[in-house]
Structure formats: C-alpha cells, structure tokens
Simulated assay, not measured.
Amino acid sequence: MQARARPAGAVPLRRDRAGRHRLRAARRHRRRGGNRCPGRAPGRPVRHRGAENAAKPAAADALAVLAEEAGLTLVQLALAFVLEHPAVTSAIIGPRTFEQLESQLGADKVRLSRDVLDRIDEIVPPGVDLSARDAGYTPAVLTDASLRRRTA
C-alpha cells in the first residue's frame, strides 16, 4: 500500500460517526492513555498559580488604581503607555466586540504625563520580570531611561 502524498503542513482529518472532523493524532493520544498533563482535567488550560505569579495581580491592581486616578480605563492606560515609547510606531489591539473596539480607539489621543509614566515605572520597573518564566532578552531601552521618553 502506497502512502498518499500530502502538502507540507497538512493535518490528516477523519470524520466521526456524527460527520465531524477529528484529528487522528488526538484519537491516538486518547487511546494511549489520554491526558498530557497528569492531575488536570482534559481540555483545561494550564493556569500559572502560586507565589511566583503573585506579583502580576498585585501590579495589575496598582495599575488599575493609577488608571482610575488619571481618569482613564486600564486599557487606555496600557495603550497610551505603549504608544508613548519612542521605538513604537503602532500598537496592535485585539478587540472581540464592538464595545471593546470603541473603548480602545480613544487611547491614541491620550498623552501620559511624566508623573504617570514614573508611577508606572515604580509599579513595574523597566526590565524587571514579575515571573521567572517571563525572563528573556533585555534590550538597552530598558536600562537607559532617556530612551523610554519621546522628545517634546
């Protein structure tokens, strides 16, 4: 029996009794004993919990308070912060609803004061990873504060 030629990246699909396509690999995996992450229900996403990740919710709460004090939503604060960086030419947004889109569109007109930018840097210092899993390359712009501000 000769194997069928498939284009690169093609995934072999198979129809089940109800006529739905199923990945053959997923079926083989279930037959062999199932769950790739023991102790976790099948299909449940991995959540990173614990002391190592506790700094992220605390930082998010502090940033939400700062956004409220500045009269902005947290999304507007985040987008304005990204657009304030001199190396950023555009910010990619990903709204799923029209309401989310409307709330994000005004962020390009928001200008953050130096005080707000400095408070953001106090809450989440540049170049500091809140979790060891987030560590990676550290560009020079994170170590030199003058590179993080647009010239007036």
Results as ranks from 00 to 15, higher is better:
92 I>P: 00
85 H>D: 08
108 D>H: 11
83 L>I: 04
13 L>M: 15
83 L>H: 04
152 A>P: 13
79 L>F: 02
13 L>T: 05
102 E>K: 10
112 L>G: 03
132 A>T: 02
93 I>W: 02
24 R>F: 09
90 S>Q: 11
138 T>P: 00
2 Q>K: 14
37 C>F: 15
124 V>W: 11
44 R>E: 15
55 A>M: 03
118 D>N: 15
74 L>F: 02
59 A>F: 00
27 R>W: 07
137 Y>M: 06
4 R>M: 12
84 E>W: 08
38 P>A: 14
47 R>E: 09
101 L>E: 03
52 E>V: 01
57 P>G: 07
107 A>M: 06
138 T>K: 14
46 V>Q: 04
110 V>M: 03
100 Q>C: 04
126 P>T: 05
56 K>Y: 05
62 A>H: 03
120 I>M: 13
106 G>R: 06
140 A>F: 04
44 R>C: 07
97 T>P: 00
136 G>E: 04
119 R>T: 05
145 A>N: 04
9 G>I: 05
79 L>I: 15
106 G>C: 09
99 E>D: 15
72 L>W: 06
41 A>G: 05
27 R>S: 08
116 V>R: 00
149 R>L: 12
150 R>N: 08
40 R>N: 02
39 G>T: 02
51 A>S: 11
17 R>C: 05
84 E>M: 09
115 D>E: 15
144 D>T: 06
34 G>L: 04
143 T>S: 15
128 V>D: 07
139 P>Y: 10
84 E>A: 15
18 A>G: 06
29 H>N: 05
9 G>R: 07
46 V>C: 05
57 P>V: 04
80 A>S: 08
136 G>Y: 00
108 D>A: 13
1 M>T: 09
15 R>H: 11
55 A>L: 12
95 P>M: 09
97 T>W: 07
142 L>E: 12
102 E>L: 13
142 L>Q: 10
48 H>Q: 08
6 R>A: 14
49 R>H: 10
98 F>H: 08
58 A>P: 00
47 R>G: 01
65 V>A: 15
54 A>K: 00
85 H>W: 03
84 E>P: 01
58 A>D: 07
54 A>R: 01
48 H>W: 11
139 P>C: 10
21 H>I: 03
35 N>K: 07
134 D>S: 15
69 E>R: 15
55 A>S: 12
28 R>T: 08
150 R>K: 15
81 F>D: 01
146 S>M: 07
140 A>S: 11
142 L>S: 07
145 A>F: 03
32 R>S: 11
86 P>I: 10
